[in-house]
């Protein structure tokens, strides 16, 4: 489980770093390029595109994790199973 969590941290960090480096590029270009009518497409919509890539990437990752058949790697299902399993005992104790 620790290896799984570590691998997720490494993957997410790399993905965020990739987005951050593109963000730095866009920020620098925006501050140095004069704003004209024919402003470049990516400069104009750069942040929006970056956000879409970031958001859709992470959403897709969650979808992949959830669709995994082995519940060992399915975080939500695992939590759900644990609660279901322990709920009667908890209920009795209360």
């Amino acid at each position: 489980m620790i290896a799984f969590i570590l691998s997720q941290i490494i993957g997410i960090t790399t993905f965020l770093v990739l987005n951050f480096s593109i963000f730095c590029y866009l920020r620098h270009k925006k501050s140095t390029t004069p704003r004209t009518k024919d402003q470049r497409f990516f400069l104009k919509y750069g942040y929006q595109i970056l956000f879409i890539i970031l958001f859709s990437g992470l959403t897709y990752r969650i979808y992949v994790l959830q669709s995994h058949s082995d519940y060992k790697y399915n975080l939500w299902r695992m939590q759900y199973q644990l609660i279901l399993k322990n709920f009667p005992q908890l209920h009795t104790k209360v």
Partner: peptide, 22 residues
């Protein structure tokens, strides 16, 4: 390498393979 690594992270289910590469 970075792009392939990120794509691998997005589609690999368990994360084991790309962790070994890392």
């Amino acid at each position: 390498l970075l792009i392939v690594f990120v794509f691998y992270f997005l589609i690999n289910e368990t994360g084991h393979t790309y962790s070994y590469f890392f």
